[in-house]
Amino acid sequence: MGITKAICFVLVLFFTGSITANNSKFSALKGNPGLRSASAIVLDSGGNLIYGKDIDTVRPIASITKLMTAMVILDAGLDLEEDIVIADQDRDFIRMTGSRLSVGATLQRRELLLLALMSSENRAAAALGRTYPGGLERFVAAMNSKAASLGMYNSQFADPAGLNADNVSTASDLARMLAAAQGYPMITDATTTLHRDVQPYASRGPLTFNNTNRLLKNANWKIELSKTGYINEAGRCLVMSTNIDGEAVSIVLLNSFGKLTPYGDSNRLRKWMLASSRT
């Protein structure tokens, strides 16, 4: 997984782009959560804004990209049981990160989707794009077409793994993307799976891959969808749909510096929301 094992954090639910009156317990929070992420957005289940910080600044999004990759693959209705062989073209020639999926490793398309979402596996994502009908160029075009259909007008996709810094979006656009991703059970299941064994080599034993979001192991969090990502240009980020105090909320945290900062910001948000809603 290499460099994308880091943590672009987005916690997101249904975002319509409008802010309306609502009866959410979080509709009139006071004070400021003191987040360190450069951009952040928090929404309730109706798409109403709970908190926003620099939500329309265009930023690189690193492996948050892989959520769009998964949606495009699933929209295409491709055979998820088809065996796909990792090829030399799937290696990371941008940042030269490594992978435990060597050239020649073979997994089903379903397993590659799981590893791309759960462990942010770059070669898995690259292989998914390469084997899309029409090849990688057609796949990237489909990513951008999907973004446009979701109203993500300040977003651009350039590769399926998120290694290219030209994969860019805004916190508000990513809220739209994550709301859409919640409609795919395979994505919600994969992104909240803690670990999975796969066997990409016939002559070797299984390999264990783990989820990159450590909050999934925290009993205080009830997470329904999550995605992490990192490159230098994007900083640390995290995506997640979650439930706080019995209410579904979404949060986008972009461009955090410090390996644990997205997790710290997530906990600061949760503490602020709980304290403010109970006063």
Rank of each mutant, 00 (worst) to 15 (best):
P185G: 09
G104R: 04
L253D: 01
P133Q: 14
M240V: 07
G162C: 02
F257Q: 12
D75K: 14
L13M: 09
Y201G: 00
R91N: 13
M240P: 02
E82L: 14
R59W: 06
V249T: 10
R204E: 11
S155W: 00
L115T: 04
E137L: 08
S145H: 08
C237M: 08
A179E: 09
V168F: 02
Q89T: 02
D173S: 07
V252D: 01
V12W: 01
C237K: 04
G104P: 04
C8I: 12
D56R: 14
S277H: 11
Q108L: 07
A40S: 15
R176M: 11
A6T: 04
Y153I: 10
E224N: 14
S119D: 10
D166C: 01
G246N: 10
T279D: 15
S63W: 02
A141L: 11
W221K: 02
R214L: 12
G183H: 13
L128Y: 10
G246R: 12
M177G: 05
E111L: 01
R95K: 09
R36G: 13
I19K: 11
S256M: 12
S119M: 07
Y51L: 13
A179M: 08
K222F: 06
E233P: 08
A234L: 04
I41Q: 10
S99Q: 08
A275N: 12
Q182F: 09
G46N: 13
L113F: 07
A76L: 06
L150I: 12
Y51F: 15
A127L: 07
D56G: 12
I94Y: 03
I19L: 05
F139Y: 08
R110N: 14
T97K: 10
A127K: 03
D159N: 11
L101G: 02
V168P: 03
L114Y: 05
I3M: 06
K66L: 05
K259E: 11
A219C: 00
L29Y: 13
W272Q: 12
R236C: 06
S39P: 03
